[in-house]
Design a protein around this nucleic acid. Structure first.
Length: 662
RNA sequence: GCCCCCGUAGCUCAGUUGGAUAGAGCGUCGGUUUCCUAAACCGAAGGUCGCAGGUUCGAAUCCUGCCGGGGGUGCCA
């Protein structure tokens, strides 16, 4: 019982001991054993079991007595001090020092720091990033990219077989716009000089012209709607005296009115942007049917038109190359980049099968899947015969299951698409893919400090490339400032880093800052993007973790210079700071398995922040190289070495680099 | 109309699925450097968990209603 070579996950070990003790006491021992948790408050010990209270209700006994019974039956004496019962029936557990030392030694000897391989490794596809290749990536792609990459790394580390797949948008309407732009507005010289840049310009241009025409067309309708809504307002106001329902209606009408005003303003702005620029205006006048024409280009591409197909073949590698450069900068790798175009040949068969099963039926000229409890249909083929991303997504599920043997598919996509994914998954189940577990790993928006979607001051979306540049530039400034202010013992300037190392540190700090700021938030919630917080020299940031790591390296350098090495000395933990640090190191497996279970990287960032925190306290309270007792010194040196290794591993699982010095 | 999400300290956010006196970072106030990087450490103040009911030994967490904010919603992805 309790063979520790099997698990260095203390929490899991405790839970299994409790499960054994609960076999005759509880209907579902596992569920009650799961109520063993890390103690919320260190005063209550290291871990606590909360199962006695709910169990007492079932058995009809006093919680306190149930807790006593559990304690009597649980065999914990090799792990814990004698457990105590507190409050209404909490069981408090304090780990024995010998056990901690033993576990720590095992963690230290393990290349995976005690993180167990998954009991039943799954074949997992992580679908993330998924930008449109026709336009440059912007800040909106950040979360999917960063969270997806972290999940890829962590799940793989947790022992699963993981494939990352970038489901790029390389087949949609944006390509029609580029094709149209290429044929009508190409700047040949610019195209030769910077293919992707010119294509992006063409996309923006055509998109803007389409928007303008579209907006101009909708202006009368928008104005009429606004007028009608405004006209209705007085009646609503009059009716809203006492009646609650009427008041609610009034408020809703006002909100609706605001929305309509906004919409009208946006449309007017789009029109004005073109009309105030004579050159643009001329273009707009010369291409009145541009939106339709661009759609036709898309249709021709899909239909196999040789010219468009040849252009697409020419554009795509350049676009993918540009994306790849960005991913290289970010240190992100995909096992596959199978975009929408890849699935095009499969689409007719998907619809045919859905139709033959009676799942897809015709409605208003389109083929739709109607799902119980929903008004909106899942459209798999449009009235004009074109397929939608719903169809592509279905084909993609089929492919991933059949070709990759996917058992789990994770879609790291923003929360706004949750309806789509619910319908997609339901349709896939009914189509015959009931065994694959599809999960929408949804995340919230990145907001600016004004609480609105993150934009530049001018109101444009922020390009990802320039975001990275700015972060690194700012990081470099901080690195310079910090290194320049270093002093030697005579209080003279003593910078440590040469230009190349400063650049490397700035890169790690800048990119790490961006990634960490994203990952440390619960992915489900929106978060406010803040330059100052992201690269702050204080607080819960990547820099703090990187700095803690650099400090571990500093001590080890010093030790090396003195001819000492971390070695394999026994680790003792006499000081509270030593014990706290040691315990925290031992919890690494818990953090990894928590992330793998819930797909929440913030569990790992939180763990690492606390680890760095424990280390900083230890650093302050427990000198290493100045410690006179050689045994204590050797023990602390190992603790430092191990802390550094876990920090570095943890950061790497988040896609963040650690620096030797900074 | 229908559907989904959010509201926690001055600010930004956690909160392990119902557990103990609700936590952290920033900011504020106070302390720490002849000593391994002060990008640090230690301490303090700061809360009606949007509001009102309900469920029970126990609620930020579950249910109902309300207030406030955001998002989605038949041929974009």
């Amino acid at each position: 019982m309790g063979c520790l070579s099997e698990t260095m996950n203390i929490l899991a070990e405790l839970q299994s001991r409790f499960a054994a003790a609960l076999t005759d006491l509880a209907p579902d021992p596992q569920a009650y054993a799961a109520m063993v948790r890390p103690a919320q408050d260190a005063r209550n010990g290291d871990y606590q079991a909360n199962c006695a209270m709910p169990l007492a209700r079932i058995v009809g006994a006093k919680p306190h007595d149930v807790a006593k019974t559990i304690i009597d039956r649980a065999r914990l004496d090799d792990l814990c001090e004698p457990p105590t019962v507190a409050g209404p029936g909490f069981i408090n557990l304090t780990l024995r020092r010998e056990f901690l030392e033993h576990t720590l030694a095992a963690v230290a000897a393990d290349r995976r720091f005690g993180a167990p391989a998954a009991e039943s490794p799954k074949s997992i596809v992580v679908d993330f990033s998924s930008p449109n290749v026709a336009k440059p990536m912007h800040v909106g792609h950040l979360r999917s990219t960063v969270i997806g990459d972290a999940l890829h790394r962590i799940l793989e580390f947790a022992g699963h077989q993981v494939l990352s797949d970038n489901h790029v948008g390389d087949w949609g309407t944006q390509f029609g716009m580029i094709l149209y732009g290429y044929k009508h507005f190409l700047d040949a010289e610019a195209y030769v000089a910077d293919k992707v840049g010119e294509l992006a310009r063409l996309y923006r241009l055509v998109n803007q012209l389409c928007d303008c025409h579209d907006a101009r067309e909708s202006l009368p309708r928008l104005r009429a709607e606004l007028e009608a809504a405004t006209a209705k307002l007085p009646a609503l106001e009059a009716a809203a005296g006492q009646d609650k329902a009427a008041q609610a209606a009034l408020k809703k009408a006002r909100a609706e009115l605001d929305k309509q005003r906004e919409e009208l303003k946006t449309a007017e702005r789009k029109v004005a942007a073109v009309e105030q620029d004579p050159a643009m205006r001329e273009l707009a006048d010369a291409h009145p049917g541009i939106a339709r024409a661009a759609r036709d280009e898309t249709a021709k591409l899909h239909a196999g038109d040789p010219e468009n197909r040849a252009l697409w073949d020419e554009f795509l590698p350049a676009c993918l190359g540009a994306l790849q450069r960005l991913y290289d900068r970010l240190g992100i790798q995909f096992d596959h980049t199978l975009g929408e175009s890849f699935y095009d040949p499969y689409l007719p068969e998907v619809v045919r099968q859905l139709a033959s099963r009676g799942l897809a039926v015709e409605s208003d000229g389109a083929r739709c899947v109607f799902l119980e409890g929903r008004n909106a249909p899942f459209i798999v083929q449009k009235g004009d015969g074109a397929y939608t991303y719903a169809t592509t997504d279905l084909a993609t599920i089929e492919y991933r299951v059949k070709e990759f043997g996917a058992q789990i598919i994770l879609y790291v996509v923003d929360a706004r698409q949750s309806d789509h994914f619910e319908m997609l998954f339901e349709t896939a189940r009914r189509w015959g893919f009931a065994d694959v577990e599809c999960r929408h790993i949804s995340f919230g928006m990145v907001l600016g400090e004004d609480g609105r979607p993150f934009k530049t001051r001018a109101g444009d979306t922020v390009g990802l490339e320039s975001l990275l540049d700015e972060a690194i530039r700012e990081a470099r400034r901080i690195v310079d400032e910090n290194d320049d202010s270093k002093r030697n013992e005579h209080d003279q300037p003593a910078p440590e880093l040469d230009d190349a190392e400063r650049a490397a540190v700035a890169e790690a700090v800048g990119l790490g800052g961006i990634k960490y700021a994203d990952l440390r938030h619960n992915r489900e919630s929106d978060y406010v993007f803040s330059w100052s917080k992201m690269l702050a020299k204080t607080g819960d940031t990547a820099t703090y973790l990187q700095y803690a790591y650099a400090r571990t390296r500093g001590i080890l350098r010093k030790a090396e210079a003195a001819g000492a090495a971390a070695g394999t000395a026994p680790i003792a933990m006499a000081q509270p700071a030593e014990r706290a640090l040691a315990l925290h190191i031992c919890r690494f497996p818990e953090a990894v398995s928590a992330v793998a279970q819930e797909y929440r990287p913030n569990f790992l960032t939180q763990y690492l922040f606390e680890l760095a925190n424990s280390f900083s306290s230890f650093y302050d309270a427990c000198p290493v190289m100045k410690e006179p007792d050689p045994a204590v010194r050797a023990s602390r040196l190992r603790l430092v070495d191990l802390t550094g290794a876990v920090l570095k591993k943890g950061l790497s699982l988040l896609g963040i680099q650690a620096c030797e010095r900074m």
